[in-house]
């Protein structure tokens, strides 16, 4: 972690690992989708629609993990002043928002045939919608504050305050009586899903996590380069050279 604090070292490592990460993501997702769509049996009650779960659940997990990552990075920003922590958080926010949206959308599509409605205002759905709003708020904060260092710290504080929502999402199905089904994989007495369905779900979860990681490392790389360009432009302007003029002349 300390060695990676140097953006150059990070870029180096990222460039070396990205092709592997990319390949692993493709392979695991392809295998997972094959298992989920072809191999696994239809549910005895839900029929074929149960396959939506193989997209819905992994994306929801990854969206929550993404917010947890942002909160950890926020600690990195505030406590250890790790130079890349803010880059990591800022890169994770749009991806997390997109994953949250996918989880909400697939849940809605799944809800229509199963519950007879696109949306219900129960605790799990509402708290997950709040996660989406939290992501949006974080992105808005980063975009509004011009000075990067101040934006980083403000976003870190907001991220930590908003982290309260993550345990609320996890336990909402236990604390309230909801239409959303209770936890069936991560529970004390072991998973309550048949292995035929659990295995593809876990493969898909791994695949989606890898997808998140790949996108995240790519976004971090872009953010580092973007910041570098910004600094270059600023020094040019400070030295009296207007950016972009060289090409025009």
């Amino acid at each position: 972690m300390i060695r990676l604090a140097n953006p150059n070292v990070f870029l180096d490592v990222a460039n070396r690992f990205l092709p592997w990460l990319f390949g692993a993501t493709l392979a695991v997702l392809a295998y997972g989708l094959y298992l989920a769509l072809v191999e696994s049996p239809p549910d005895y009650q839900q029929g074929e629609t149960v396959r939506i779960m193989f997209i819905h659940v992994p994306f929801a997990w990854a969206a929550m993990a993404g917010y947890t990552l942002i909160a950890l990075a926020a600690l990195g920003t505030l406590v250890w002043r790790h130079p890349l922590a803010d880059v990591a958080a800022q890169a994770a926010a749009p991806i997390g928002a997109a994953f949250t949206f996918v989880a909400l959308a697939t849940g809605s599509i799944w809800g229509k045939p199963m519950w007879g409605t696109w949306w219900v205002w129960d605790a799990r759905l509402t708290s997950f919608l709040l996660l989406f709003f939290l992501y949006i708020g974080l992105i808005a904060l980063w975009q509004t504050i011009e000075e990067p260092l101040r934006a980083a710290r403000a976003a870190a504080i907001l991220a930590l305050v908003g982290f309260i929502n993550i345990p609320v999402i996890k336990f909402s199905v236990d604390w309230w009586n909801t239409l959303h089904q209770p936890a069936s994989v991560l529970r004390i007495d072991g998973p309550a899903i048949h292995p035929d369905i659990l295995a593809p779900l876990l493969v898909m979860a791994l695949g989606v996590t890898l997808l998140f990681l790949t996108l995240h490392v790519m976004a971090m790389r872009n953010e580092i380069l973007r910041r570098r360009i910004r600094t270059l432009i600023r020094t040019q302007v400070e030295n009296g050279v207007a950016p972009g003029l060289e090409q025009a002349q």
């Binding site: 709040l130 709003f133 939290l134 949006i136 708020g137 808005a140 904060l141 509004t144 907001l158 305050v161 908003g162 929502n165």
Partner: peptide, 10 residues
Amino acid sequence: LLTAILVLPL
């Protein structure tokens, strides 16, 4: 406006 977006989820 940003304040509203930030605190409404809370």
